[in-house]
């Protein structure tokens, strides 16, 4: 199985901008990963490094133990849905389906056509005639139908309306359940991807700050809400991040495992305890 290992990778642009800083992580096969980070956090750089589009300044990336650099076999097992438009703009969508089939022998033409119909993508149109949303849909379809062992999506829902975003994530889960594969979804629209991903990788200012299952990540914090003085009392000797204070009401995220929450004390202080949402926790730790 093709495990991707990123070992101490650093990428510095022009000897001054550190896009990725000593990143180490392991991508297990047949899981869906969410690569989350703020704008400019280093998500795209990390994906470009994984697919050998750019070279690390330090460290190495391996797939199944082999360095990814100039590794034809390994690179052929990956499909990278890039955020940038590198396809010839004057080419028609249906032509690019055929071109993809030439490079990815397992590319499913029928599935691609069915998806195009489902998303109402006109395959007779040229790439430059497509809107931003439909360009994303076109690239998403290529990635979904590629049947590659490893599929990387960089901002797959860029420019998509709510309906299309929902359709895409449903299709992604359906595709994964029928043909399990390693999927990495890089996005900063977190609330929608929260139900799709199994593992979360959070990158902030080039550093990997979290790499764990969504379940474990969410259980590493919880939210409390109540009167300001009561909340302050609860928070004594606890690591916390204050989110907001509205009048006398105070809401805070407590950075400790859910197992450690003191329900008895909360009840005495009339404080409400609740689970933290992925997006809120993300915002909290990347502030």
């Amino acid at each position: 199985m093709n495990t991707i290992k990123v070992k101490g990778v650093t990428k510095i642009y022009d000897s001054k901008t550190t896009a990725v800083d000593d990143a180490s992580l392991t991508i297990e096969p047949n899981k869906i990963y969410g690569l989350l980070g703020r704008n400019g956090a280093g998500k795209t750089t990390l994906l470009n490094l994984m697919t050998d589009k750019i070279f690390p300044t330090e460290g190495e990336i391996t797939i199944a133990g082999l360095n990814v650099n100039e590794n034809d076999k390994m690179l052929a097992s990956m499909f990278y849905m890039m955020q940038t438009d590198a396809y010839p703009l004057s080419m028609k969508v249906k032509e690019l389906f055929k071109w993809t089939k030439k490079f990815y022998v397992h590319f499913d033409m029928d599935y691609a056509s069915a998806l195009a119909k489902k998303f109402q993508l006109d395959i007779t149109k040229k790439i430059h005639e497509l809107s931003t949303g439909y360009r994303s849909i076109f690239k998403d379809i290529l990635a979904l139908a590629s049947n590659a062992e490893i599929v990387l999506f960089d901002e797959p829902v860029l420019g998509l309306d709510t309906n299309h975003r929902d359709m895409f994530y449903r299709e992604l889960i359906k595709n994964y359940s029928q043909k399990p594969k390693t999927i990495i979804v890089s996005t900063h629209i977190i609330d929608e991807v929260a139900d799709v991903i199994e593992e979360v990788i959070i990158i902030n200012k080039g550093k990997i700050i979290r790499e764990q299952s969504v379940e474990n990540f969410l259980s590493s914090a919880y939210v409390i809400a109540g009167r300001e003085d009561k909340v302050d009392k609860y928070l004594e000797n606890r690591e916390f991040i204050i989110e907001e204070t509205i009048g006398a009401l105070k809401i805070a995220t407590v950075m400790e495992s859910e197992k450690n929450k003191n329900e008895k004390l909360a009840k005495e202080l009339n404080i409400e305890l609740s689970n933290v949402e992925l997006q809120k926790l993300f915002i909290t730790i990347t502030r």
Partner: peptide
């Protein structure tokens, strides 16, 4: 430029 753009979307190695 156009060739390398096209080839890089299909993960073709630089050597190839």
């Amino acid at each position: 430029g156009t060739n390398i753009d096209f080839m890089r979307v299909f993960n073709v190695t630089r050597k190839k």
